[in-house]
Nucleic acid binder design. Sequence first.
DNA 1: GTTAGCACTCAACAATAGAGAGTGCTAATT
DNA 2: AATTAGCACTCTCTATTGTTGAGTGCTAAC
Lengths: 358, 358
Amino acid sequence: MALDDRKRMILQAIVEDYINTAEPVGSRSISKKTDLNLSAATIRNEMGDLEEMGLLVQPHTSAGRVPSTGGYRMYVDSLMEKYEMTAAEIDEMKKAATKKTLELEKIVRDVAAAFSGITGLPVIGVLPGTEASVVKNIKVVKIDSDKAMLIVSDKSGIIKNKLLHLKTDISDAFADDLSKILNENLSGLTISEINLSNIMEVQSVIGKNFEILASVMEMVHEAVLEIDTKQIFIDGLSNIFRFPEYGNVEKVKELFEVVEDKENLSKIIMEASVSTQTKILIGDEIPIPELKNNSVVLSPYRVSENITGILGVLGPARMDYPKIISALEFFTNQLSEALTNDFSDKKNQKLMIGKGDE
Amino acid sequence: MALDDRKRMILQAIVEDYINTAEPVGSRSISKKTDLNLSAATIRNEMGDLEEMGLLVQPHTSAGRVPSTGGYRMYVDSLMEKYEMTAAEIDEMKKAATKKTLELEKIVRDVAAAFSGITGLPVIGVLPGTEASVVKNIKVVKIDSDKAMLIVSDKSGIIKNKLLHLKTDISDAFADDLSKILNENLSGLTISEINLSNIMEVQSVIGKNFEILASVMEMVHEAVLEIDTKQIFIDGLSNIFRFPEYGNVEKVKELFEVVEDKENLSKIIMEASVSTQTKILIGDEIPIPELKNNSVVLSPYRVSENITGILGVLGPARMDYPKIISALEFFTNQLSEALTNDFSDKKNQKLMIGKGDE
DNA sequence: GTTAGCACTCAACAATAGAGAGTGCTAATT
DNA sequence: AATTAGCACTCTCTATTGTTGAGTGCTAAC
């Protein structure tokens, strides 16, 4: 059966109506709401066809229709119209995205929280992984007789640091030497290239002070490993209470249990992390059976060439895709802009997200 | 009316029964379950008295009784027996509390998560505030042409650090000088004593390089302020789904909304932070009306003399107080021990929570 | 002082009926 | 040939009603 123009329009109308009302859509209401000038009976025939094509589903015999995963997919791929944000909305978003913090993690988390507030949806965030960062500078700073801090930075300015507890006292000078040696041997490598054998090598370069070094090196290794793990978080989860589909505790409970497990979140992220543009997972396209009535929209943000994080939303499959997508991409763009500016330019002291036109 | 021994025993039996079943307790079940050898009718009379005294409440005419806030209060203050943990339980807890991380925040969060897992309750945690810490060492480390890191440590080793973005390039030597000056002028003060006028003073000590210094100082000030804010978090919230009292969405929603607002959490914490021992807030003793059917048990942990954090649980008022209290105090003790050891001793490289007898 | 007995109350549950929304099919209309 | 009106049918949802059972308060007997 062919999906002619009329069928497309009817499908679009049904999806959009269902997005708004969360109620199965009947033929009569489509007949009235669209300007197709068709009677309910005609719509009914068409709806029967659309159901046969697998784009609609009927919850029970005497109910209206609801989009299937395929129906939503058709909608987002070729039916929906791009949402144009109003000036007021852009303004509000800019305001929400403006943060004066300077730490990358905080910025991302704050922006994610703001985004959740604006969309009224739970937000998934992934902090930039550092495994692809090229180390530019390593420093060991003595803090106390038994403590030192390891500071690793890369060209774009991402800095991670870790407190080291030392078995033996070291001098300031020794810390400086250590920094120099580490720098000479490890800078230029990516984080993921720094492994134990690598560090051992550095160790063998210096013959003297072997024991002291051994423990420090071990800790450096641990520190680098730890830095390596991507961090996923979710915020604004309680937003799901807005949706009638989460009107009973079982559903809520299920969602919370699924989502509290980071394993699950990374499964979702995996699906999207290959792509460099916005990715939409609808219904059972999400690799977690419990989320089959939900959708996820994910969009990457950039910190530098190959360092990226992800921001996205999670919600019922009947989300307002055009609007969500616009808003999400706006936020990830702003985030990219802010982060690349701030973490590589020399100008800005305070971080301004937005194009600086205010 | 006097609260004689028999009434006390009956009250205790009712509270404990209600804690277990979450169902209003009837006279007949108390008559059977206790070894008082009293008929249901007698118990009924006594229950009538207890209700009159404000210790019990009847949800409706033909229902059993439920403890009132006063009833719970009476129970925790003078009725309940101390819960003795079994060796197996202690073992399990020790295992759960053993962490090899070295960062204070991570340790606390991990222990809190473990505690939530063991008690099956949501956990509230407060990271140690640093406002009372006496600054021992301040360091400015140059990272890049436009970035430096400020590292503040105190005697017990608590270290906070912050990335500074500089307007002007500085030399390594200048960073060293800056560290020296900051140290000479600010070490010995508590964090809360370091304020703007204080920093201005340092600034005036050095005449030259004024402009450069001005911006650095401003950032130092900001950094110190930021360090000052206590951090409250909540974990394991989805545990509340275990309780029948959260069987409908409205209740769950309400709880989530209350608890997501940090303002509310700090209100709760305020109530307890004066005390140096375990504090129990029951029902409407919690300064948040929405939580009137809940209780909070809070216990402080020590990092050093006057630096403390708080760990606690939140749950329905009918929680198993004796057990919760034992477990909570066990955990805060372990935490105190681990943190004071690790953050002041010179011995342990790895952090062992527990008495090291394994 | 304690207990048995009894009338009474009320929530919870199940069964039933009716309304309303929506469908599919058929026959009439354009 | 496509569209539409009409109608019987299906199924959910809501309200109503009756029934059950747990629990109480009171009174009179032990």
